[in-house]
Structures are given as structure tokens and as C-alpha cells.
């Protein structure tokens, strides 16, 4: 992964910029790979169970559950294949403390969606932008405040004033 050639980049997709890649992107171990396989299998099993409960029907009159049952079954099989290959798999990244900012980001968005219907989008949007700028992005206080306020004003003018979108808004 530390070799910045196209093939290596392909492992994590085109979005990973080439450059020095310290240990945070280290390969996941077999435990992670098995866990991924287990999640896939479980998802397939759940889909299969739900689909059979809907009713599969018969070939001349397929029921609502027929197609999802096929897909659920396929996922179970694929999950087993993934588990069998877990040792030889090297395309996953290790999960660890580097994920903390991601959790913080998700939390900020969860707060946004939770309160937007109650107090409108302006205040949560400004707060979200500020948190991302100041704490996730390490921008200066001045830039953080200015950009988050300016952004909310711009969004308001664009979506509410110009496009008349019905997004909940306070002003």
C-alpha cells in the first residue's frame, strides 16, 4: 500500500490519494475479515427469513418474497466464501482509533437530522459547519465562525429565498 502505483491504489479505490500512508491504513487482520464475512452472512440470513415470511409463491405466480429470498440465499453463500477466504484477504483497512473523527462527524449529522424538523436548518447547519471546521478540520476560530455563518446565509438565500425549497427553516 505504500507503493504509489495505480494497482496498489486500486485496492482502496481511486479516492485514496497516493503519498505516504502510515500505519493507520494498515491491513485488517483475519478477525476483521471474519467479522465482515459474518455480517454479510447474517444480513443474508435475515433477508432470507424475512423473504420467506412474505411468501415465495410458485414459479407461475411468484410471491413478493421470491426474489428477496434468492438474494438472501446468495448473500449467505457469498458470506461463506468470504469467510473461507478471510486469511487470504488483504483489501480491508484496520478499524481503530483513527475512526474517532468519523464517529464525531456522524454524531454531528445525527444531531442535525434530529433537530432540523423542530428548530429549522439554520442553527444546526451553522453548528455542524463550525464543529467540522474548528474541531475536525483544525481551522482557526475566525475562519470557522466566518465560514459557518456565511455558509448558512448562502444556503438560506439559495434554497429558501431563490428555490423555495420547503426545508424546515426558522427565518
Amino acid at each position: 500500500m505504500s507503493v504509489p502505483n495505480p494497482v496498489a491504489d486500486a485496492e482502496t479505490g481511486p479516492e485514496t490519494a497516493s503519498g505516504p500512508e502510515p500505519e493507520a491504513d494498515a491491513k485488517a487482520g483475519i478477525v476483521t475479515n471474519l467479522a465482515v464475512a459474518a455480517v454479510v452472512t447474517a444480513l443474508g440470513a435475515a433477508a432470507l427469513a424475512g423473504a420467506l415470511a412474505l411468501g415465495a409463491g410458485r414459479p407461475a405466480q411468484p410471491g413478493p418474497g421470491a426474489w428477496p429470498a434468492i438474494l438472501g440465499g446468495a448473500l449467505v453463500l457469498l458470506g461463506i466464501v468470504l469467510a473461507l477466504r478471510a486469511r487470504a484477504t488483504a483489501d480491508a483497512e484496520r478499524f481503530g482509533r483513527t475512526a474517532l473523527p468519523v464517529l464525531a462527524a456522524l454524531a454531528s449529522m445525527a444531531v442535525f437530522v434530529a433537530v432540523v424538523g423542530v428548530i429549522g436548518f439554520e442553527i444546526p447547519a451553522a453548528l455542524l459547519a463550525f464543529v467540522w471546521l474548528r474541531f475536525l478540520g483544525r481551522e482557526s476560530w475566525l475562519v470557522s465562525v466566518a465560514v459557518s455563518l456565511g455558509l448558512v446565509v448562502a444556503l438560506y438565500l439559495l434554497f429558501v429565498a431563490a428555490l423555495d425549497v420547503t426545508i424546515p427553516h426558522m427565518f
Binding site: 449529522m109 442535525f112 447547519a125 455542524l128 459547519a129 467540522w132 478540520g137 481551522e139 444556503l155 425549497v165
Partner: peptide, 24 residues
């Protein structure tokens, strides 16, 4: 800068998602 672009993109995405069906 990515640190500035990220929250802008995120907010436009969130509001954009709302506009599809006008649904939170």
C-alpha cells in the same frame, strides 16, 4: 482547502437529499 470544502459539501448534500422528496 478540504477542511473548508467538507462541511460545505456535507450541508449541501444533506439539504439536497431533503429536496428529492421533501422528506427529513
Amino acid at each position: 482547502r478540504p477542511a473548508v470544502l467538507a462541511p460545505i459539501t456535507v450541508l449541501i448534500t444533506l439539504i439536497g437529499a431533503y429536496t428529492v422528496n421533501n422528506s427529513v
